[in-house]
Design a protein around this nucleic acid. Structure first.
Length: 324
DNA sequence: AATAATCGCAACCGCGCTCAA
DNA sequence: TTTGAGCGCGGTTGCGATTAT
């Protein structure tokens, strides 16, 4: 049903920002008489405003229990959590955040949290990893950045060079890996042949991942393309022991057995997921996660990358810096 | 220093729900 | 059962403040 204008005399009503005098009149009236009927309130309070405007001013600004100031991290988390469960139900969300109005939460969501999630590669509507090509292009920005880093490092500094090479390679890897996902290309496990070629490449080129990365095209052009990240991980899986890695036969970027374990256990982190698990989709999935406090803290895409824990060369150089 | 672009927030708009007559 | 007043909600707009060029 509904109604359009909230009062017939609306055209004569004042609009726009409230003056301190109007605020005082409204507060004084409500403190004395309450606000049983918003429609009759402005007339009784001596305000040339429509009741709706009075209600909004009171509920969003003048109410004595309104909390002012920045949102705390805890409040942010709660908003994101609740939004993932119930969507844009701002008034419902506000009931869980004492002193915060639905309007304030809505504004905060639109101006801060939405962007924050997007920066993290999370779709603010579905709360799942983004699958669009924008995110892919942002990753190619990372590739460009890592390439620049590669150009900046002293060619004589072998360790730094390898780190930069690895950064560039990982970026390439992720782009290709996600392209294969986006295009629904099947990923059969790497054959022994592929592994042998990979092994040769690493040995011939002194274990430089940068050089290896430059050969990825050979794999991505063949039919039945193999997910490049799987090639790399299979290579490490295939290595006879961690000592082989540590002895310099493989990339110095992966030097500890702990690092190896991470590489073996997972492919490149799923910054972009082209598909969701059959039994866990979109908001329902998030609902499950939020019901479980541990799952609710599930890693963000960025955390996935941090989880690679590839180590740091020195205080001024870290993977976090590259990935940021 | 001037101008344009962007951001952040308060306020408005209009739809739909509830409930009393 | 129908009607419509009143209210609440979510989306949108307007504008001052801030930042970038």
């Amino acid at each position: 049903m509904g109604r359009s204008p909230c009062c017939e005399e609306k055209i004569h009503m004042k609009k726009g920002p409230w003056t301190p005098e109007e605020d005082k009149k409204l507060v004084d009236y409500i403190q004395q008489h309450g606000h049983r009927s918003w429609r009759s309130l402005p007339k009784n309070a001596g305000l040339n405003r429509c009741g709706k405007s009075c209600r909004l001013r009171w509920t969003n600004y003048l109410r004595p229990d309104i909390k002012r100031g920045n949102f705390s991290e805890d409040e942010e988390r709660q908003i994101i959590h609740l939004h993932s469960l119930i969507g844009n139900k701002w008034s419902k969300i506000s009931t869980h955040l004492p002193g915060r109005t639905d309007n304030e939460i809505k504004n905060y969501w639109n101006t801060h949290l939405k962007k924050k999630l997007l920066r993290m590669g999370i779709d603010p509507v579905t709360h799942t990893r983004r699958t669009d090509l924008d995110a892919l292009s942002s990753f190619s920005t990372l590739l460009t950045a890592s390439a620049s880093l590669s150009n900046l490092v002293n060619p004589l500094d072998n360790a730094l060079r390898l780190h930069a090479d690895a950064a560039q390679y990982l970026a390439t890897l992720q782009i290709l890996a996600n392209l294969t996902k986006l295009t629904n290309i099947s990923n059969p496990p790497p054959s022994i042949n592929h592994l042998q070629q990979l092994n040769d490449l690493l040995h011939v080129n002194g274990g430089s991942l940068g050089v290896l990365g430059s050969h990825l095209g050979n794999y991505s052009n063949v039919p039945n393309i193999i997910n490049p990240s799987e090639i790399l991980m299979a290579k490490f899986n295939h290595a006879s022991s961690a000592s082989e890695i540590n002895s310099g036969m493989s990339s110095p970027a992966f030097t500890t057995s702990n690092d190896m374990q991470i590489c073996i256990d997972s492919t490149a982190p799923p910054l972009l997921s082209a598909s969701t698990p059959e039994n866990c989709e979109g908001r329902e999935c998030m609902q499950e996660q939020m019901d479980n406090p541990i799952d609710a803290n599930a890693s963000t895409p960025f955390q996935d990358w941090q989880a690679l824990n590839l180590g740091e060369i020195d205080e001024d150089f870290s993977w976090k810096d590259i990935l940021e």
